[in-house]
């Protein structure tokens, strides 16, 4: 892979600019979460934390720059089925994700929602002008 052109270089997304970078989105069901903490320990992006009084803790997403990878490992380990991704990540410009549909649990039959899966969405990062049109 050779040198990028200057135009391509300019398309490098700025990772803390919401116009350039959309990270994974997780939803936490506070009625199910018992604040066991394990998701906060294994999250590769260090974006989860506990909040609330002792004996009544729950998980939540941290403030500030939250770079969730949408790996869903928090869901994999949660004993309470309290957390899961609802959307993947996407970047504007050079690293725009291509040809993606909504996230799904493993499907035994295509075209049908998988059992136990959450209904996901496709992230909609605004495309850089040069690379528009992905979600047509």
């Amino acid at each position: 892979m050779g040198l990028l052109t200057k135009k391509e270089m300019k398309q490098t997304p700025i990772v803390d600019d919401a116009n350039d970078a959309r990270y994974g989105v997780v939803e936490i069901d506070l009625d199910k979460c018992n604040g066991c903490r394990i998701c906060t320990l294994i999250c590769p992006s260090n974006v989860l934390e506990l909040f609330g009084e002792k004996h009544n803790r729950r998980a939540r997403i941290k403030e500030g720059l939250v770079m969730c990878l949408a790996c869903d490992n928090c869901h994999a380990i949660c004993d309470r089925d309290a957390i899961s991704i609802v959307s993947g990540y996407d970047f504007a410009g050079r690293y725009k994700q291509l040809g993606r549909g909504a996230p799904s649990q493993p499907r035994l039959e295509w075209g049908k929602p998988a059992a136990g899966g959450y209904t996901g969405t496709v992230p909609q990062c605004p495309a850089a002008p040069e690379m528009d049109g992905r979600h047509d």
């Binding site: 320990l41 790996c71 869903d72 994999a76 040809g99 909504a102 996230p103 799904s104």
Partner: peptide, 16 residues
């Protein structure tokens, strides 16, 4: 591994 990281399968994006 700590905990039960394989309790649930995960959701991942579908691909064209």
């Amino acid at each position: 591994p700590l905990g039960k990281p394989m309790r649930n399968t995960v959701s991942r994006e579908t691909h064209e």
